[in-house]
Computed example of a mutant assay.
Amino acid sequence: MKLSLILAPYDSGYRNAGCGQGPDAIVTGGLVEELTLHGHDVVTQDIGEVGATPGREIATGFAVATAVAQKAGEAVKDGRFPIVLAGNCLTTVGAIAGDGADSIVWADQHGDLNTPETTTSGFLDGMALSAALGQCWQAMAAAVPGFAALDPSRCLLVDARDLDATEKEILARLSILRAPCTDAPALAGKLAADGVLRTHLHLDLDVLDPDVLQANRYTWPGGPDPDRLQQAMTALAGQLPIVGVTVSAYDPAYDPQGDVPPVVGRLLVGVLETLEKKA
Protein backbone atom coordinates (compact mmCIF):
# COMPACT_ATOMS: atom_id res chain seq x y z
CA MET A 1 0.00 0.00 0.00
CA LYS A 2 1.18 3.54 -0.73
CA LEU A 3 1.37 5.44 2.56
CA SER A 4 2.00 9.02 3.60
CA LEU A 5 3.33 9.52 7.13
CA ILE A 6 2.48 13.07 8.16
CA LEU A 7 4.34 14.34 11.23
CA ALA A 8 2.69 17.08 13.32
CA PRO A 9 5.09 17.41 16.28
CA TYR A 10 3.20 19.98 18.36
CA ASP A 11 1.89 19.93 21.92
CA SER A 12 -0.17 22.80 23.34
CA GLY A 13 1.21 25.28 20.85
CA TYR A 14 4.86 24.27 21.12
CA ARG A 15 6.88 22.31 18.59
CA ASN A 16 8.90 19.29 19.76
CA ALA A 17 7.82 19.65 23.40
CA GLY A 18 6.04 17.06 25.51
CA CYS A 19 3.90 14.88 23.28
CA GLY A 20 5.21 16.92 20.37
CA GLN A 21 8.35 14.78 20.62
CA GLY A 22 6.27 11.68 19.94
CA PRO A 23 6.06 11.72 16.13
CA ASP A 24 9.83 11.85 15.66
CA ALA A 25 10.35 9.23 18.39
CA ILE A 26 7.92 6.84 16.70
CA VAL A 27 9.71 7.26 13.37
CA THR A 28 13.15 6.94 14.97
CA GLY A 29 11.84 3.86 16.76
CA GLY A 30 11.56 2.05 13.44
CA LEU A 31 8.07 2.73 12.07
CA VAL A 32 9.15 3.35 8.48
CA GLU A 33 11.32 0.24 8.48
CA GLU A 34 8.47 -1.86 9.93
CA LEU A 35 6.01 -0.64 7.32
CA THR A 36 8.50 -1.07 4.49
CA LEU A 37 9.35 -4.57 5.67
CA HIS A 38 5.68 -5.44 5.20
CA GLY A 39 5.68 -4.22 1.62
CA HIS A 40 4.39 -0.67 2.00
CA ASP A 41 5.66 2.29 -0.01
CA VAL A 42 6.22 5.00 2.62
CA VAL A 43 6.71 8.73 2.16
CA THR A 44 7.37 10.80 5.29
CA GLN A 45 6.46 14.48 5.54
CA ASP A 46 6.75 16.98 8.41
CA ILE A 47 4.26 19.86 8.41
CA GLY A 48 7.08 22.24 9.34
CA GLU A 49 6.85 25.39 11.43
CA VAL A 50 3.29 26.66 11.78
CA GLY A 51 1.61 29.27 13.95
CA ALA A 52 2.73 32.86 14.29
CA THR A 53 3.46 32.75 18.02
CA PRO A 54 4.75 29.66 19.87
CA GLY A 55 2.62 28.77 22.87
CA ARG A 56 -0.63 30.25 21.58
CA GLU A 57 -2.39 26.94 22.04
CA ILE A 58 -5.66 27.61 20.23
CA ALA A 59 -4.25 29.53 17.25
CA THR A 60 -1.35 27.11 16.81
CA GLY A 61 -3.56 24.07 17.32
CA PHE A 62 -5.80 25.05 14.44
CA ALA A 63 -2.81 26.10 12.33
CA VAL A 64 -1.48 22.56 12.81
CA ALA A 65 -4.88 21.17 11.80
CA THR A 66 -4.83 23.31 8.65
CA ALA A 67 -1.35 22.11 7.69
CA VAL A 68 -2.33 18.49 8.30
CA ALA A 69 -5.51 18.90 6.23
CA GLN A 70 -3.42 20.12 3.31
CA LYS A 71 -0.89 17.29 3.60
CA ALA A 72 -3.56 14.61 4.04
CA GLY A 73 -5.55 15.97 1.11
CA GLU A 74 -2.46 15.88 -1.09
CA ALA A 75 -1.78 12.30 0.01
CA VAL A 76 -5.30 11.21 -0.94
CA LYS A 77 -4.99 12.87 -4.35
CA ASP A 78 -1.68 11.02 -4.77
CA GLY A 79 -3.32 7.69 -4.05
CA ARG A 80 -1.63 7.43 -0.67
CA PHE A 81 -3.20 6.40 2.62
CA PRO A 82 -2.57 9.18 5.20
CA ILE A 83 -1.23 8.30 8.65
CA VAL A 84 -0.86 11.33 10.90
CA LEU A 85 1.55 11.19 13.84
CA ALA A 86 0.46 13.99 16.15
CA GLY A 87 1.25 15.44 19.54
CA ASN A 88 -2.29 16.64 20.17
CA CYS A 89 -5.70 15.08 19.54
CA LEU A 90 -7.08 18.30 18.04
CA THR A 91 -4.89 17.58 15.01
CA THR A 92 -7.48 15.00 13.97
CA VAL A 93 -9.75 17.90 12.94
CA GLY A 94 -7.25 18.46 10.12
CA ALA A 95 -6.86 14.77 9.38
CA ILE A 96 -10.59 14.23 8.80
CA ALA A 97 -10.72 17.37 6.69
CA GLY A 98 -7.92 16.04 4.50
CA ASP A 99 -9.15 12.50 4.05
CA GLY A 100 -12.81 13.48 3.72
CA ALA A 101 -14.07 11.26 6.53
CA ASP A 102 -17.79 11.05 7.20
CA SER A 103 -17.38 8.99 10.39
CA ILE A 104 -14.84 8.36 13.10
CA VAL A 105 -13.60 5.80 15.59
CA TRP A 106 -12.11 7.67 18.55
CA ALA A 107 -10.01 5.39 20.80
CA ASP A 108 -8.94 7.37 23.86
CA GLN A 109 -9.02 7.04 27.63
CA HIS A 110 -10.63 10.50 27.65
CA GLY A 111 -13.88 11.67 26.09
CA ASP A 112 -12.42 14.94 24.74
CA LEU A 113 -16.03 16.13 24.73
CA ASN A 114 -15.84 19.35 26.69
CA THR A 115 -16.45 22.79 25.20
CA PRO A 116 -15.21 26.24 26.25
CA GLU A 117 -18.43 26.57 28.25
CA THR A 118 -18.06 23.27 30.12
CA THR A 119 -14.32 22.77 30.58
CA THR A 120 -12.85 23.23 34.04
CA SER A 121 -9.24 22.75 32.92
CA GLY A 122 -9.17 24.91 29.78
CA PHE A 123 -7.16 22.16 28.04
CA LEU A 124 -7.81 22.42 24.32
CA ASP A 125 -7.32 18.71 23.67
CA GLY A 126 -10.14 18.02 26.10
CA MET A 127 -12.39 19.60 23.46
CA ALA A 128 -10.91 17.83 20.43
CA LEU A 129 -13.71 15.37 19.72
CA SER A 130 -16.32 18.05 20.37
CA ALA A 131 -14.63 20.20 17.73
CA ALA A 132 -14.64 17.32 15.25
CA LEU A 133 -18.35 16.81 15.90
CA GLY A 134 -19.17 20.50 15.43
CA GLN A 135 -20.00 21.12 19.09
CA CYS A 136 -17.44 23.89 19.67
CA TRP A 137 -14.83 26.07 17.96
CA GLN A 138 -17.03 26.11 14.87
CA ALA A 139 -15.48 29.21 13.29
CA MET A 140 -11.91 28.01 13.84
CA ALA A 141 -12.69 24.53 12.53
CA ALA A 142 -14.57 25.90 9.52
CA ALA A 143 -11.37 27.69 8.47
CA VAL A 144 -9.57 24.33 8.12
CA PRO A 145 -9.68 23.45 4.39
CA GLY A 146 -12.17 20.69 3.68
CA PHE A 147 -13.49 20.41 7.22
CA ALA A 148 -17.08 19.31 7.70
CA ALA A 149 -18.35 18.49 11.18
CA LEU A 150 -19.16 14.82 11.71
CA ASP A 151 -22.58 13.67 12.86
CA PRO A 152 -22.28 12.41 16.47
CA SER A 153 -24.26 9.30 15.49
CA ARG A 154 -21.35 8.41 13.21
CA CYS A 155 -18.83 8.44 16.04
CA LEU A 156 -17.69 5.36 17.96
CA LEU A 157 -15.95 6.31 21.20
CA VAL A 158 -13.70 3.49 22.38
CA ASP A 159 -12.61 2.91 25.97
CA ALA A 160 -13.21 6.44 27.27
CA ARG A 161 -12.92 5.65 30.97
CA ASP A 162 -11.77 9.01 32.39
CA LEU A 163 -14.85 11.21 31.98
CA ASP A 164 -15.92 14.21 34.02
CA ALA A 165 -19.54 14.82 34.99
CA THR A 166 -20.19 17.20 32.12
CA GLU A 167 -18.86 14.77 29.54
CA LYS A 168 -21.18 12.10 30.90
CA GLU A 169 -24.08 14.52 30.42
CA ILE A 170 -22.94 15.26 26.87
CA LEU A 171 -22.74 11.55 26.08
CA ALA A 172 -26.27 11.12 27.40
CA ARG A 173 -27.47 13.91 25.13
CA LEU A 174 -25.63 13.05 21.92
CA SER A 175 -26.09 9.86 19.91
CA ILE A 176 -22.44 8.83 20.13
CA LEU A 177 -21.78 5.08 20.14
CA ARG A 178 -19.59 4.05 23.06
CA ALA A 179 -17.91 0.79 24.06
CA PRO A 180 -14.90 -0.59 25.90
CA CYS A 181 -12.13 -1.74 23.61
CA THR A 182 -13.07 -5.42 23.59
CA ASP A 183 -16.70 -4.65 22.69
CA ALA A 184 -16.01 -1.99 20.06
CA PRO A 185 -16.00 -4.36 17.03
CA ALA A 186 -19.54 -5.43 17.92
CA LEU A 187 -20.72 -1.83 17.49
CA ALA A 188 -18.94 -1.29 14.18
CA GLY A 189 -21.90 -2.84 12.39
CA LYS A 190 -24.09 0.04 13.56
CA LEU A 191 -21.79 2.52 11.84
CA ALA A 192 -21.64 0.37 8.71
CA ALA A 193 -25.43 0.06 8.67
CA ASP A 194 -25.67 3.85 8.74
CA GLY A 195 -24.08 3.89 5.29
CA VAL A 196 -20.75 5.44 6.22
CA LEU A 197 -18.32 5.63 3.32
CA ARG A 198 -15.12 7.01 4.85
CA THR A 199 -14.07 6.33 8.45
CA HIS A 200 -11.14 7.92 10.22
CA LEU A 201 -9.39 5.96 12.97
CA HIS A 202 -8.10 8.12 15.83
CA LEU A 203 -5.77 6.45 18.35
CA ASP A 204 -4.71 8.36 21.44
CA LEU A 205 -2.02 6.11 22.87
CA ASP A 206 -3.09 6.78 26.45
CA VAL A 207 -5.99 4.43 25.71
CA LEU A 208 -3.51 1.70 26.66
CA ASP A 209 -3.39 0.30 30.18
CA PRO A 210 -0.63 2.37 31.86
CA ASP A 211 0.29 -0.57 34.09
CA VAL A 212 1.35 -2.39 30.92
CA LEU A 213 2.58 0.48 28.75
CA GLN A 214 2.58 4.18 29.62
CA ALA A 215 2.42 6.57 26.68
CA ASN A 216 2.15 9.94 28.46
CA ARG A 217 1.45 11.60 31.80
CA TYR A 218 -2.34 11.51 31.43
CA THR A 219 -2.76 8.06 32.95
CA TRP A 220 -5.91 6.45 34.25
CA PRO A 221 -6.36 2.87 35.46
CA GLY A 222 -7.64 0.22 33.10
CA GLY A 223 -7.62 0.04 29.34
CA PRO A 224 -6.46 -2.64 26.91
CA ASP A 225 -3.00 -4.07 26.67
CA PRO A 226 -1.27 -3.65 23.27
CA ASP A 227 -2.42 -7.04 21.95
CA ARG A 228 -6.07 -6.39 22.78
CA LEU A 229 -5.93 -2.91 21.28
CA GLN A 230 -4.44 -4.31 18.07
CA GLN A 231 -7.04 -7.05 17.90
CA ALA A 232 -9.89 -4.57 18.35
CA MET A 233 -8.58 -2.04 15.83
CA THR A 234 -7.85 -4.76 13.28
CA ALA A 235 -11.38 -6.11 13.73
CA LEU A 236 -12.79 -2.61 13.21
CA ALA A 237 -10.71 -2.24 10.04
CA GLY A 238 -12.34 -5.39 8.77
CA GLN A 239 -15.80 -3.87 9.11
CA LEU A 240 -15.38 -0.16 8.38
CA PRO A 241 -14.08 1.78 5.34
CA ILE A 242 -11.07 3.29 7.08
CA VAL A 243 -9.43 5.98 4.94
CA GLY A 244 -6.93 7.49 7.38
CA VAL A 245 -5.37 7.10 10.81
CA THR A 246 -4.16 9.51 13.46
CA VAL A 247 -1.84 8.33 16.24
CA SER A 248 -1.51 10.94 18.97
CA ALA A 249 -0.23 11.84 22.42
CA TYR A 250 2.99 9.84 22.82
CA ASP A 251 5.51 11.47 25.15
CA PRO A 252 8.77 9.50 25.04
CA ALA A 253 9.76 10.92 28.42
CA TYR A 254 7.28 8.46 29.96
CA ASP A 255 8.61 5.52 27.95
CA PRO A 256 12.32 5.33 28.84
CA GLN A 257 12.77 1.89 27.29
CA GLY A 258 11.22 2.93 23.97
CA ASP A 259 8.52 0.25 24.13
CA VAL A 260 5.73 2.28 22.50
CA PRO A 261 7.06 2.74 18.91
CA PRO A 262 7.20 -1.02 18.14
CA VAL A 263 3.63 -1.35 19.44
CA VAL A 264 2.52 1.42 17.07
CA GLY A 265 4.28 -0.32 14.21
CA ARG A 266 2.64 -3.68 14.86
CA LEU A 267 -0.78 -2.09 15.30
CA LEU A 268 -0.58 -0.17 12.03
CA VAL A 269 0.71 -3.22 10.17
CA GLY A 270 -2.27 -5.20 11.41
CA VAL A 271 -4.79 -2.53 10.44
CA LEU A 272 -3.24 -2.01 7.00
CA GLU A 273 -3.03 -5.73 6.29
CA THR A 274 -6.73 -6.04 7.02
CA LEU A 275 -7.56 -3.09 4.76
CA GLU A 276 -5.48 -4.60 1.95
CA LYS A 277 -7.33 -7.90 2.19
CA LYS A 278 -10.62 -6.05 1.82
CA ALA A 279 -9.50 -4.08 -1.22
Rank of each mutant, 00 (worst) to 15 (best):
Q70Y: 12
Q70E: 13
Q70M: 13
Q70A: 11
K71V: 15
G73P: 13
G73K: 07
G73R: 08
G73W: 11
E74V: 12
E74W: 04
A75R: 02
A75C: 09
A75G: 13
K77E: 15
R80Q: 12
P82E: 10
I83S: 10
V84L: 13
V84H: 09
L85H: 10
A86I: 13
G87S: 08
L90I: 15
L90G: 01
T91D: 09
G94A: 08
A95V: 14
I96E: 14
I96V: 15
G98T: 12
G98D: 13
G98S: 10
D99S: 14
D99L: 04
G100L: 02
G100T: 09
A101L: 05
A101I: 05
S103E: 04
S103A: 15
V105D: 02
A107R: 12
D108P: 01
D108H: 06
Q109H: 14
H110V: 08
D112R: 04
D112G: 05
T115R: 05
P116E: 02
P116H: 04
E117W: 06
E117M: 09
E117F: 03
T119S: 12
T120H: 14
T120L: 14
T120E: 14
S121Q: 12
S121L: 13
G122C: 12
G122R: 14
L124A: 00
D125V: 04
G126P: 10
G126W: 14
M127T: 02
M127V: 03
A128K: 01
L129V: 07
S130L: 11
A131P: 01
A131W: 10
A131E: 06
A132S: 10
A132I: 12
G134Y: 11
G134C: 05
C136P: 00
C136L: 01
Q138F: 01
A139C: 00
A139I: 01
A139F: 01
M140D: 05
M140G: 00
M140C: 04
M140S: 07
A142I: 03
A142H: 08
A143M: 07
V144H: 05
V144Y: 09
P145Q: 07
G146Y: 07
A148Y: 01
A149S: 03
D151K: 12
P152E: 03
S153P: 00
S153F: 10
S153L: 10
S153Y: 09
R154Y: 01
R154L: 07
R154N: 02
C155A: 13
L157H: 04
V158R: 06
V158N: 06
R161P: 12
R161K: 08
L163T: 02
D164H: 13
A165N: 13
E169H: 11
I170P: 00
L171E: 06
A172L: 09
A172E: 10
R173G: 00
R173D: 01
I176C: 09
I176Q: 11
I176M: 11
I176D: 09
I176Y: 08
I176G: 04
L177T: 08
R178F: 01
T182Y: 04
D183L: 09
A186S: 11
A186D: 13
A186C: 03
L187G: 06
L187H: 07
A188P: 13
G189F: 07
G189K: 01
